[in-house]
Amino acid sequence: MPQPPATRPDGARASAPGAGPASPPPADPVIETRGLTKAYRGGQLAVDGLDLVVPRGSVFGFLGPNGCGKTTTIRMLMGLIDATAGSARVLGSPMPAAGRRVLPKVGALIEGPALYGFLSGRDNLRRFDAADPAADPRTRERRVDQALQRVGLAAAAGKKARAYSLGMKQRLGLAAALLQPRELLVLDEPTNGLDPQGMREIRALVRELAADGTTVFLSSHLLDEIEQVCTHAAVMARGRLITQGTVADLSATVLDTRASGRLTVTTPDPADAARVLKEHGVTELQLTDDRVTGDLPGAADGQVPPDLADLNAALVHAGVRVRAFGTERASLEDVFVQLTGEGFDVAG
C-alpha cells in the first residue's frame, strides 16, 4: 500500500548555520548535510565538511574513487555511524535521531549485500521485513513475492542464499530494499558483481523506480553508469565534496572551460596539421602517432570559436591529408579527472 508522500507540517527547526545563502537549495531536499565530518580513530578524516543536497525526485549519482568516503557518508546518513561534526537530514528529519520514523521510508543497499547463508532467499527477505516495525505482517508474503519478482529472483527464491552467485546476492539485497514503497532508495555500488545484462536490468529498474517518483541516491565509481541513469551528480575525492549539480551542468563545466570540447584530427601528416591548427588559434596541441588533439579557442578566452568546417578546409588547403576530423564531447570521466586531478580507481 503506497504511503502518501508524507507531507510533514514543515515546522522543522530552521537550521541556523549557513541560513540564507545566495541561491537557496531546492525546496524540500531528500538529503541535506551541513559540514558533515567523520574522523576515524587516529584523526584521519574519512569525510571532511560535506555539504550535500539531494533534490526530491532526482536520480542522484554519488561519484568518487574507491575509498574516498562515499560509503562512510552513506553510513552516516543511515545512522549506522555517528558524525564527528556537522548534521544530516534525511527526508526532512535529523539523522540518526529520527531513524525510527525515517528509515522505514528508505530502502538501502550498503556496501554490497549481506545475507543469512543458511536461509533461503525468501526467508532472508521475511527476516529483514520482520525487522521493520512499520511493516505490516499481513501483507508480508505478498510484498516479499513482489520484491522477488521485481529483481528477477522468483525462480531461485527457495534456494539457500549461500548457493547464490554474487549477482544473485546483489539482486536479493535490492529486493530487500524494495520490500516497501520507498521515498528514497540509497544504492551503494548496486551493479557490483553483475554481468552486463544484470547491469542493464538494474539500470532499467532504477529508471522505473525514479519514474514512480522515488528519489534514488546511487553511489558508484563507474562513470558511465552515473552518466547513463542520473539526473544529478556529486563528485567526491579524498573525503571532500568537489562539486555537485545536474549532470548536464557538470558536463557543461568542462565544455565551458574547453569551449566546445577537444578537437581531434587523424592524419598521416601530423606535424603539418599541428602547424596549421596552431595558426588558427588551437591550443594545448598534442601529437600521438597519426592523431593531433587540441583545445579550440573558446568563449572563455573571449574569442569566437572558429567554425569547424573552416578549420577543416584550412587543413586541406594546406595540403594536410585528413582521415578523420571532429570534437570529442566531454564525458563525466573528463569532468572527474579534471576536477580531482586523478584517475578514478583508488585514492592514495
Binding site: R75, G79, L80, R100, L103, A114, L115, G117, P133
Partner: peptide
C-alpha cells in the same frame, strides 16, 4: 560478522529493540 547487522539496523530494527 555477516554484515546482516547493518541491514537489520536500517530496516530499522532499532538498536535497543534488537
Amino acid at each position: 560478522h555477516g554484515g546482516t547487522l547493518r541491514y537489520l539496523l536500517v530496516a530499522p530494527a532499532g538498536r535497543t529493540r534488537l
